[in-house]
């Protein structure tokens, strides 16, 4: 019995725990132990979801947020990667800039939101920048560590085979950094969405963050929780995609 249980994949246990929790919640709500006004219940949230799907609100707002977070992730990811690689390969530059980077990373980024809205307006731009700011340092610091952890012997060997500085960069440092890039991507995925949502929360007329802000001000807990659940599912799905990518790109490990 013990052996067959051990064979069940951990994912299945997660699923079972989740379903049990939902059933418990639903049952408690039905029995009147949970105040639906404050806490809603799974069936209500599901109904909310179907309604938002049917009237098109979900598609409108989700696509806005996805676009902001996607562009933010791209912008922050590319800039962060370039920064990390550059600092990693230029020791003098990194000695000068790393303290500054660490300091900037210490900024409460979400608290920068209002300023960013003032600077970049209520539209797409401010959300993309918010989201990029959330992920930039993750990429920069990870890639920096990645470059520093490349085995010196590999670099020397490629130089001895006649590799130029540029070739060492392309054929040693870059491929050795891919695992760090993917790790950053996994961490950054959720944060890029958080960035976009906080941006919308602070000032927007569309997007999941706006829906969250609008529904909570109406005490529409069902809709709030519905949006939260959708975001969670999207982050988890994104994580699965990155993991698949990892398995494909890192099969040499």
């Amino acid at each position: 019995m013990k052996r067959t249980l051990a064979k069940v994949s951990p994912g299945v246990w997660t699923g079972i725990a989740l379903v049990l929790a939902l059933i418990l919640w639903e049952a408690a709500a039905k029995a009147g132990h949970v105040d639906l006004f404050f806490f809603s219940c799974p069936s209500q949230i599901w109904a909310e979801f179907l309604e938002m799907l049917a009237d098109g609100t979900m598609a409108i707002h989700l696509s806005v947020t996805a676009k902001e977070a996607g562009l933010g992730l791209l912008l922050g990811g590319v800039l962060g990667t370039i920064t990390g690689l550059t600092l990693g390969t230029h020791p003098r530059l990194s000695r000068a800039l790393m303290p500054l980077m660490t300091g900037l990373n210490g900024l409460p980024k979400l608290a920068m939101g209002p300023l960013i809205i003032i600077w970049f307006g209520l539209g797409l731009k401010s959300k993309v920048i918010m989201s990029a700011l959330m992920v930039f340092f993750i990429f920069a610091f990870n890639l920096y560590s990645g470059v520093l952890s490349v085995e010196r012997e590999l670099i020397t060997a490629v130089k001895l085979l006649g590799g130029t500085r540029q070739q060492v960069m392309r054929k040693v440092i870059w491929p050795a950094s891919i695992p760090w890039l993917l790790t950053s991507l996994r961490t950054a995925l959720g944060l890029s969405i958080s960035g976009a949502i906080v941006g919308e929360y602070l000032g927007a007329s569309k997007g999941m963050g706006w829906v969250l802000a609008a529904s909570s001000s109406r005490f529409d807990v069902g809709r709030v929780l519905c949006c939260v659940a959708v975001i969670v599912v999207i982050v988890v799905l994104g994580d699965c995609v990155v993991r698949l990518l990892e398995r494909k790109l890192l099969k040499w490990r």
């Binding site: 012997e153 590999l154 020397t156 060997a157 490629v158 054929k171 040693v172 491929p175 050795a176 891919i178 040499w252 490990r253």
Partner: peptide, 10 residues
């Protein structure tokens, strides 16, 4: 050299 310097991702 003594070290293993094959590129592991190739």
């Amino acid at each position: 050299s003594q070290a293993d310097t094959l590129l592991p991702w190739r």
